[in-house]
Structures are given as structure tokens and as C-alpha cells.
Design a binder for these strands. Structure first.
Lengths: 222, 222
DNA sequence: CGAAATCTTGACCGATCTCAACTTACGTGG
DNA sequence: CCACGTAAGTTGAGATCGGTCAAGATTTCG
């Protein structure tokens, strides 16, 4: 029960609730776990549940009309997915793949909607989250539409910075292959552009996953 | 009052309400009008209201970090905007420009949130709408990330079809300049690609704004 | 009807992708 | 715990796509 509780309390949209409301929601969840590499759902699946990551790491990706894959996001504990099939369409429009052994809590569409009617402030939290995600997604679209690869990489690196006062060393949250996919380019081009940025003295590749940003102002002007 | 009522009743997120709830919401709105060419809000503005289009046409666009403009969408009567400043951040992240004389209803963030608490089913409607928009936006992002310009144009045209059984002739909802901006390309490239598609016999440009799709299957394989 | 904006076409160039070879990192099973 | 096989990452060369600049045609709207 303890770990089940943790599963809910770490989710931003629920963490303002009272203890007993939290318990009520917890009772409505079911748990399941997935081995590394397994698919949690696929495009078209009619699973109408919200999936909350309790442990592990999940890759969310889409496959375009012409068959090319793009990484949409990586889910870490506390993140959730499947909201489209809960609130909107009846089916998934992306793929979710466990990239490490993963544990998940699920709430069905029906139960979640009951809670939203009962505790309307949860909806406001979710609406806030959705509108921010929508905004992020549109910003991303605009970047794809207007910026070249090197600029998109620069912004991607800049946004990985946790605290600019603390450290300008960032850690890639996924493989470079996935970074390339996320940024709409190829591993070859990413590799080259990072080498270019390093040659210009704007970044320093310390290890394959750690990059120190040497000159953030110049980097963002690329 | 009649036109004010119409303003609300045509909005999908409200149109399931009872007559008296509708009246209540209407009383909370204020009206205003904008001349063609005027800016309704700009990136950074702290206007926390939902803007519902009653009459006219509005261009929503963003300007990227490096100063390039991208058209995000065109609003027609019944559409709304400003949701980010209502539910999420406190400021706008895009520009809204009246492209014809336009009339608008506005509801402030506070009043709207009161309604959502009072009538929780409205939230579910908005959540459905948001998750569909989020999905559309992510699909668009994936297209930008993985498809070339010609393919993006092809899908854009295909999605303009109202009823495939009725007619395969579509009308561009905006200038080709704006279509190019929306699709993340230039007017020159759009012009050339349309000419290419026409040469291949896939489309027929009847007038500057009307295009007949001759072979939709082939078109989507481009 | 005319000015201004939009749209089209051509020539050129640069950015990025593709294909291929090679190197490096990683996970697995002995 | 090491060795090996596989996947990831890098680098080079060549091809292609799409952008830029410029000129001309067309449309739009006052």
C-alpha cells in the first residue's frame, strides 16, 4: 500500500488533494509491471486508462503516415500518459515502450471521470497541465517549422539545464539516436553538429551523455 | 442579446448546457470588436481571458526565438483562443491578429473557473477538446520532424476535404503565403511543389484558391 | 484603374540526408 | 569477470531538397 500511495502522491495533478481523497483514488487504481523492451500500448489500441509511471522509464513515440518514427517524449516516475484515450478519442495515437523494467498504476476512464465530477479542482489542475503541454507542443512545432537543425539542438541543450547558477553541465536524458529522432534529424547530423559546436568552443562533450555548455549566449544565437 | 447568445451556443464546449446555465455564462461575457489588421493580443500579454470569435477571422501566429514567424491556426466563428492564459501560464505565447473585421466575446479566467467548479461537466468537454488539440499538435510536430515539404502539402490538402463522397475539390482557407508559413516552408517552394503535383496529374489548380484532387491515393504516397 | 501585395519561375547555393565504412560502448552468457 | 556480438555513435563523400535572391506575372483592393 505504501508504494501504491507513492504512485499517486508524486503526480502533480493529484498532489493537492486531501489524504482521504487520495486514498479513494488509490483504491481505484490497478498496478502492473512491464519488462524492459515490452510495448505497453500501441497506436490504435483501445485502452481507455490513464497510465501513471511508478518506476522505470517509458519511450513514447509516433510513427508518421509514411512510416518514419519520431520520439515524442520520455516518461519518468510521476509522469503519465494515455490521456487522449481517457478524455478524447477512444484509442491511442502513439506507442509506449518500457525502456527499463517499469511499474505502472492505471485508472480507468470511467473511474477517473467520476473523480473529476466529484472533485472539480482536479480538472483545473489537468487543464493547466494540458494547456502547458499544448503550448510546449506548439512551440516545438514552430521550432521545426522555422529553425534549422543546429538551432534546435542548441535550444534542446539549453532546456536541459536544471539551474543555470549551479552548473552548465547537462546530461542527455536518452540515447543520441533518440535525441536525433526527437529533434527531427538523423544520428549522423546530430553527431556532426555537436562536433561543430564543440569546435566553435560553445560546448564540451565530457562523456557520451554529459555535455558542458561553455557559452550559452553564443549557443542560443547559432 | 440574441447575437450574444449565439456567440456562446456555437461553442462546442458549452453547447450541451441547459438554457439557464447558458444564460448565466452569457451574462459573464463582455464583447469587443477589432478592425481588420489590428492585433488582439501579442506574445507576453497578461490577458487572462478566453476569447471566443463571434464574427470575422483571426490569424494566430508565433514568432520563433530567432525571429521567424509561423502561422499556427486560423480562427473562425465559434473557435476560441487564449486558453493558455486562462488555465496555464499567465501570459500569451502567440499573436492574434484580426484578418477581417472581427467581433469577440470574452470571459475572464476567474469567472470561467467559477463555472467549471459549478458545472464540472464543462471541464470534461474542455479536457476532451484539449486532448484532441494536443494530439493534433503532436501529429503536426511528427510530420514536421519526419516528412518532407511535398508530403506535408499533400496531407494538408487531403485534410481540407470535407466529404470525400461529395467532392474532391478543396478551398485553401488562407493565402498561399500563410499556407507556406503554416507548413514551415516558403511561398516559392509551395508554388513549385503545387506545380509539380499538378504536372504529375495528382491535383488540378482551378483558381488560385481552389484545388481539385485528382488522385488522392497517389497524392498521399508522395 | 493603379499601387501594393501576392504569386510564380529561374538560377544558384547551402543545409541536411543517405549510404557506407569504421570505431566505440554495452549487455549477455559462458 | 571477460569476450564477444550487437547496437550506437562517428566520419566521409556524394546526392538531394529546399531556401534565397531576383525578376516578372497576377491578383486584390481602395
Amino acid at each position: 500500500m505504501q508504494s501504491q500511495k507513492k504512485c499517486i502522491t508524486i503526480v502533480p495533478i493529484f498532489n493537492h488533494l486531501e489524504e482521504d481523497q487520495m486514498m479513494e483514488i488509490m483504491d481505484a487504481t490497478t498496478q502492473s509491471s512491464y519488462k524492459k523492451g515490452s510495448l505497453i500500448y500501441r497506436d490504435g489500441d483501445e485502452v481507455a486508462s490513464l497510465f501513471i509511471v511508478r518506476k522505470g522509464k517509458i519511450r513514447i513515440y509516433k510513427i508518421s503516415e509514411s512510416g518514419k518514427e519520431q520520439l515524442v517524449r520520455i516518461l519518468l516516475p510521476g509522469d503519465y500518459t494515455g490521456e487522449l484515450a481517457v478524455f478524447g478519442k477512444m484509442y491511442q495515437t502513439s506507442y509506449a515502450e518500457a525502456i527499463s523494467d517499469t511499474e505502472i498504476c492505471m485508472i480507468t476512464k470511467e473511474k477517473l471521470q467520476d473523480f473529476l465530477i466529484k472533485y472539480p479542482t482536479i480538472s483545473l489542475k489537468i487543464l493547466a497541465e494540458f494547456s502547458n503541454r499544448l503550448n510546449e507542443s506548439e512551440k516545438q512545432t514552430t521550432r521545426f517549422a522555422t529553425e534549422k537543425v543546429e538551432t534546435r539542438i542548441a535550444f534542446f541543450l539549453a532546456e536541459l539545464i536544471e539551474d543555470p547558477n549551479l552548473s552548465l553541465e547537462v546530461e542527455l536524458p536518452m540515447s543520441k539516436k533518440d535525441v536525433a529522432s526527437y529533434l527531427g534529424t538523423t544520428p549522423e547530423t546530430l553527431s556532426r553538429k555537436l562536433a561543430d559546436l564543440e569546435e566553435k568552443g560553445l560546448i564540451l562533450q565530457k562523456t557520451s551523455k554529459r555535455i558542458e555548455i561553455m557559452d550559452i549566449d553564443e549557443l542560443l544565437l547559432v
